[in-house]
Design a binder for these strands. Structure first.
Lengths: 250, 250
DNA sequence: GTCATCATGTTGTATGATGACCTGACCAGA
DNA sequence: TCTGGTCAGGTCATCATACAACATGATGAC
């Protein structure tokens, strides 16, 4: 799977994407808005004024404006001008992957996920029907199968959690979990991969026992128990993650 | 504070922004990516090919590409081409405000907020120091003052919750709460505004009593109690919201 | 086999022109 | 006084063209 130097060396790593003029302008304007120097609803300088101020072509200015519009920071009206968005509502929630290099930052995201998933487990217990319960059970079996064939079952594990989030009948839970999950999965799998095959199996079996408790509580429709089981599982996950990631500490 | 017809009438409401050619192209390409017809890492057609296919100028294509790049859906490399992002990691979490017209959708967001805030209260109880505890207390007093002068204390209320989120020492809690909060605040305040002055005061005093319980648990460093108090508060909030929003039902 | 060089294709930037649209001022008529 | 119509100027939207910067693969010198 892994080719020669993959990303082991901190030296040969892809460079940061080149900072072209457009992103430069985007950041300048975004900064003005974030700092409040450009208030909500305020009108931006005209395209011509921006080209002259920044000494760039209209192409660059227009691309920057298009980017800011896509981010929901500004709105443009033909024949009138560009304005800082009134409702910054449209501004999305982001997590910068570049900041996720440290263990502490990963744990921060895990904590965020904790609250989300505990609540999801509770709602799932209250609202799951035969179909969604079946899908959660199927995900559980898929993990079993993966463990049996010696796999780390990372994808299957995530699918289990996602099935629970879907059972809440509140689509935001699954969407947010999917969003947060992307920041956690890969690292964990790498670390786990270091262990011996038998160790791995025993390790995964312990996790799977926790999964089964969650599943049982959901099937029983006991939201209180489901929350407790999920909390226990995630707290243990955090401890496990901390231990695994401290291991390679020279 | 509120001008004449504000947003009372569903008739006179700003029109949806006109769909220009750029957004048209953005949606076409975003659709291709979302559907998987353009796989991760796949290369997009060249700008020239796109101009010919869509019958638009290169300006439009480039603005669309800039927008997609801002959303983290694609990456471009000069001299090489544009590619669907490998790590969709950079893709942010969004909630479309246009979908938030129904009560059910607002409750969905409130549920999301519930899990987040309960956990935040727990962590705050564990981690708050003198400074953060003081800030939470100050927020509490600010609500008192607002109630005393007959204000609905919406901003102050939110500031209290935000102070708790900040006390977790995990910046993501506050950021996500801020993000979700934007979707809830305005509507609540409008509804509450309908009540009589004395009713309003009694109503707010009940809420404030719940706040005080949360604060007491955090000051005591009792995370279990803090979670419970926050859960009770948010569950009650949901009930209150449902009742208030059903009121104007002819 | 290694390294420089070059042709080719692609994105990045600049520029000028035209169309579409909004705003405010002015004005005629009720 | 008020309403509605017209017009001029400003601004964004789109188009077209040209050149610069960069990456890639082919070629050839060593």
């Amino acid at each position: 799977m892994s080719s020669l130097g993959d990303d082991a060396s901190p030296l040969l790593r892809p460079l940061a994407p080149p900072r072209n003029r457009t992103t430069e302008v985007v950041e300048r304007l975004a900064g003005e808005i974030a700092s409040g120097r450009l208030a909500r609803g305020a009108r931006l300088p005209t395209e011509q004024a921006l080209t002259e101020a920044f000494r760039v072509s209209r192409t660059v200015v227009r691309e920057a404006v298009a980017a800011l519009r896509a981010e929901g920071l500004i709105e443009t009206r033909q024949g009138v001008g560009a304005f800082v968005a009134q409702d910054i509502q449209r501004r999305p929630f982001r997590i910068d992957p570049d900041e996720l290099q440290t263990i502490g930052e990963v744990v921060n995201v895990m904590e965020l996920r904790t609250g989300l998933e505990i609540e999801a487990a509770g709602f799932a217990a209250e609202r799951a029907d035969a179909g969604t319960r079946g899908r959660i059970g199927a995900a559980l079996k898929a993990i079993d199968a993966a463990i049996k064939r010696g796999d780390a079952a990372v994808d299957e594990d995530f699918a289990f959690h996602l099935a629970i989030a879907r059972a809440t009948r509140n689509p935001h839970f699954a969407r947010l979990l999917e969003f947060l999950g992307r920041f956690l999965i890969p690292r964990q799998s790498v670390r786990i991969g270091l262990k011996k095959a038998d160790d791995l199996k025993a390790y995964l079996e312990r996790i799977q026992a926790e999964h089964r408790q969650i599943f049982a509580a959901i099937v029983a429709g006991n939201s209180e128990a489901a929350r407790k089981a999920m909390r226990r599982h995630l707290m243990n996950s955090r401890t496990r993650y901390r231990m695994l990631s401290q291991r390679p500490k020279r």
